Simulated scan of single mutants.
Amino acid sequence: MTDSVRVIGVSALHGRVLAVDRVDAVFRAGAVTAVTGGNGSGKSALVAVVAGVHPAAQGEVVRPPGGVALVPQSWSADRPLPLSVRAAVAMGRWHRRGRWGRLCTADHAIVADAMERLGVTDLAGRQIGALSGGQRQRVLVAQGLAQRAPVLLLDEPTAGVDAPARAWIEDALAAEADRGTVVVHITHDPASVERAGYRLHLEAGRVAAPVPPTAGAGIGVRS
């Protein structure tokens, strides 16, 4: 379990509201885990705590060394636009080289691999703003893959995309898990839940048990 992520008694606040309430969970290396639950169930807050971008009010998260890649649901308004697809994916290497550092040959190879895995190689020279929503989302996931972190967290990566884009993204997540990465994504899509190896279902900030029979029951049970 040394390469997995362990969540131990974690609670977290959203403002003054308890968003995550004493959650215990294990996100396994080499597997895709779907985090599910209704609106306000604490999914995004839990993933933010696991990513280290939101503080835990209590408890702790034990992560493998090497950092965490966090892929948001969409491009935020403060992203530096316009920029090309290749440049956007290359941003995933900034944590290694710094924003102004030059990418080495290995970095360029990683960027090219991430673009190929998401089917955006032929879009490399196009501007992000000129892409469809599904294309932009694939570029965003490719940027996450380019980080080559041992933990990959995604907030609804297939929300609002068409079937081909969904297939590219889900295939890439499965391949990333096959590399030994901890892959965790929030989803409302039953097909994505079915494809994931494991499911963590939240209700009112707590792990719910049992979960619907189609997705197994409890933590660490295959879907």
Score class of each variant (00 low, 15 high):
Leu131His: 03
Asp24Ser: 11
Ala87His: 09
Ile169Leu: 03
Pro190Cys: 08
Leu173Asp: 07
Arg136Asp: 00
Ala45Gln: 14
Arg93Pro: 03
Asp178Trp: 01
Val161Ala: 09
Arg79Phe: 10
Val151Gln: 03
Ser74Met: 01
Asp122Met: 11
Pro213Thr: 10
Gly42Phe: 15
Ala217Cys: 12
Pro72Lys: 11
Gly15Asn: 07
Val35Asp: 05
Ser74Lys: 12
Val221Gln: 13
Val32Leu: 03
Gly144Arg: 05
Gly38Tyr: 00
His95Arg: 13
Ala172Leu: 08
Pro190Ser: 07
Ala48Asn: 11
Ser11Trp: 09
Trp168Pro: 04
Arg93Met: 04
Val182Thr: 11
Pro210Val: 09
Trp100Ala: 10
His95Asp: 01
Thr105Pro: 05
Val151Lys: 01
Ala174Lys: 10
Gly92Trp: 12
Asp107Gly: 05
Ala57Leu: 14
Gly15Cys: 04
Val47Ser: 02
Pro150Leu: 10
Thr33Asn: 05
Ala114Ser: 08
Gly42Asp: 01
Val50Ala: 00
Ser223Val: 13
Ser41Lys: 13
Ala159Arg: 09
Glu170Arg: 15
Ala112Ser: 14
Thr105Val: 12
Ser132Arg: 02
Val32Ser: 02
Thr121Tyr: 01
Pro65Val: 01
Gly66Ile: 02
His201Thr: 13
Leu46Thr: 13
Ala109Val: 04
Val23Met: 08
Pro213Trp: 09
Trp75His: 13
Val7Ala: 02
Ala209Val: 13
Pro210Met: 09
Gln73Val: 09
Gly40Lys: 11
Pro213Met: 06
Val71Thr: 08
Ala109Trp: 00
Leu154Met: 13
His54Tyr: 06
Ala191Met: 04
Leu13Tyr: 14
Ser76Ile: 00
Glu194Leu: 15
Ile110Asn: 03
Gln143Tyr: 00
Ala196Gln: 10
Thr181Glu: 06
Arg93Tyr: 07
Gly59Met: 05
Ala34Val: 06
Thr36His: 05
Asp21Cys: 14
Arg222Ala: 07
Lys43Asp: 03
Asp3Ile: 01
Pro55Met: 00
Ala112Arg: 14
Arg79Asn: 08
Arg222His: 13
